[in-house]
């Protein structure tokens, strides 16, 4: 009887191949394919209706899509920079603490321990115009007597969302920068002090260059996070009212699951992923040039 004999290396790799095919390759190919069809979740047979690049052309011509795209980039820029500055400040302060530093580091990470959905609800409550903590506080302090529409006005809602993002994720920067601070060799810092640097100059010319790789790593991680931002925004405003806080993924999610236009949603998803890739490439380039300038690796 003939038995097919596969080479051992292929047999050993087979489970990995099968899993990769099932969880990565097939969904990827399928979603890419469906982005060229008029696929609607409610009418499964539409997955075979090939419409070429129509979905992509539609997305590129759609002002709502570009508004969401722009808002996502803006959120990324504002949130990341704020988180970096606050995280840097926090890390510098915590690094100075001698007693109870472990405890502080643990406390610092608390925001990361909450589900973003819950954070969304909490901030939705804080920014609620009638019963919210913030308006109540402002009114009690006599700073205002109107109910500020935090989650209704487009700009204010953006600020509210940024606040929630920054609150949850500043600690990512703080922890990574703190790790960087611990890794800095003390000799160059002392040399700078002897060379005539004020504390600010020491920080600017010696400490900061050493921290840059750590900052870029945090940036790369967080840019992926924010580029796919969905949960907090979905809970707080659901992209509304009237698309005023629409981000890429709230738009894509609604198009795919609420409007059931999965083909179109996939097409927008692929364009959105280019954004993530662009940011990642950018920060990794920055990271490697910062490392090279420090003489680390190549």
């Amino acid at each position: 009887m003939y038995r097919m004999r596969l080479p051992p290396w292929l047999v050993l790799l087979m489970p990995a191949f099968v899993i990769l095919l099932a969880v990565v390759a097939i969904p990827l190919v399928l979603s890419l394919y469906s982005s060229f069809t008029a696929f609607q979740l409610t009418r499964p047979e539409t997955i075979t209706r090939w419409i070429g690049t129509f979905n992509y052309e539609k997305a590129i011509g759609d002002a709502n899509f570009w508004a969401a795209f722009g808002r996502t980039v803006l959120l990324l820029t504002v949130a990341l920079n704020l988180e970096m500055l606050l995280g840097l400040g926090l890390a510098l302060m915590v690094a100075k603490v001698t007693h109870g530093q472990r405890l502080l580091r643990t406390i610092m990470m608390f925001p990361m321990m909450f589900s973003p959905i819950l954070v969304g609800f909490q901030f939705k409550f804080i920014f609620n115009d009638n019963v919210g903590l913030l308006n109540n506080a402002l009114q009690s302090l006599g700073l205002t007597d109107v109910a500020i529409p935090w989650l209704v006005d487009g700009n204010l809602a953006f600020i509210a969302i940024v606040t929630a993002e920054v609150w949850t994720s500043t600690s990512v920067f703080a922890i990574l920068i703190l790790a960087g601070l611990f890794a800095i060799p003390q000799d160059p810092v002392e040399a700078a002090r002897v060379d005539g640097c004020t504390p600010w100059q020491t920080f600017r010319y010696v400490t900061l260059p050493f921290l840059m790789p750590f900052i870029y790593i945090a940036m790369a991680i967080r840019s992926l996070d924010v580029a796919r931002a969905y949960d907090i925004v979905q809970v707080m405003t659901a992209g509304g009212p009237a698309r005023r806080t629409e981000l890429l993924w709230t738009l894509i999610g609604r198009t795919g699951y609420v409007d059931a236009r999965m083909g179109y949603a996939n097409a927008m998803g692929y364009i959105a992923i280019l954004l993530s890739i662009a940011f990642t490439v950018h920060f990794f380039r920055k990271l490697s040039s910062a490392r090279t300038s420090l003489g680390m690796g190549d």
Partner: peptide, 20 residues
């Protein structure tokens, strides 16, 4: 006085150069 006001310079065991 802080080190910067002492008009001294120092050579360290590990060179302490600014790597960047």
């Amino acid at each position: 006085l802080p080190p910067r006001d002492r008009n001294i310079s120092m050579v360290f065991q590990n060179y302490a150069l600014y790597p960047h």
